[in-house]
Design a protein around this nucleic acid. Structure first.
Lengths: 112, 112
DNA sequence: GGTGATACATAGGTAACATAGGTATCGCCC
DNA sequence: GGGCGATACCTATGTTACCTATGTATCACC
């Protein structure tokens, strides 16, 4: 346990979740599906990874949760970003761009 | 301990090291400086992070190490990629491109 | 009644990084 | 001679974050 597959880039899950919620509340399962679909099936968020992450973000006040009912009438917990979460989204996106661009630059470098 | 600053994107250190060594052997301290310089000072690899990583890569036969002397006559341990390490560099660069592109695509998505 | 999708959750394992220390040599400047 | 910063190596400890496995329950469908 604890390392195979490597679907996600560590440290990117929070910002992916926040992005998923940037246009409106979604429940956990839908967040997972949205990330998978928006990444054209490259990124998969296993449920054992997603739910603890959501609980943590809720505890840290990046998200708030509310029980509701989905399209098909099933109970589900809907998450929305708090004002703090919205600010964090901006900051985390900026950080990702900066860092990932730096990594790509290094990996494209001609000479070592 | 264990989380502040966030200089590195977790999971990218190995490939950055391999890239640094792709044009020839370097010693640890020079690897650190090279990554910092090639990333235009965005990425910094603290020594307490670098050296354990080098030892692990050596143990896993991605790198081999040899004591030598640097330009200025000081003793230093020089690392070179093994054939396995060269293959890993290609594979890890490809994986990075695929995954980081997916994250960027998601974060640029218009609609959630 | 079985299966697969939906929807939530927790438990245990491990790797990876951040921080903080520690040793030693060398050049430079006062 | 003393101090300082850069070079060059190293280990120990803490914590996060992810991976896997497993569990519950509902619902549609055949």
């Amino acid at each position: 346990m604890g390392k195979p597959h490597d679907s996600l880039i560590p440290g990117t899950l929070n910002v992916l979740i926040l992005k998923a919620l940037s246009q409106g509340a979604l429940h956990g399962y839908a967040i997972s599906k949205w990330i998978q679909q928006a990444s054209e099936d490259v990124l998969r968020v296993e449920e054992g990874v997603l739910y603890p992450a959501l609980h943590k973000l809720e505890k840290e006040r990046w998200l708030r949760a509310e029980w509701g009912v989905n399209d098909t009438g099933r109970r589900a917990k809907f998450y929305s970003p708090t004002p703090l979460g919205k600010r964090k989204l901006q900051a985390e996106v900026a950080r990702w761009k900066r860092s990932s661009q730096a990594v790509s630059t290094v990996l494209d470098a001609e000479e070592a």
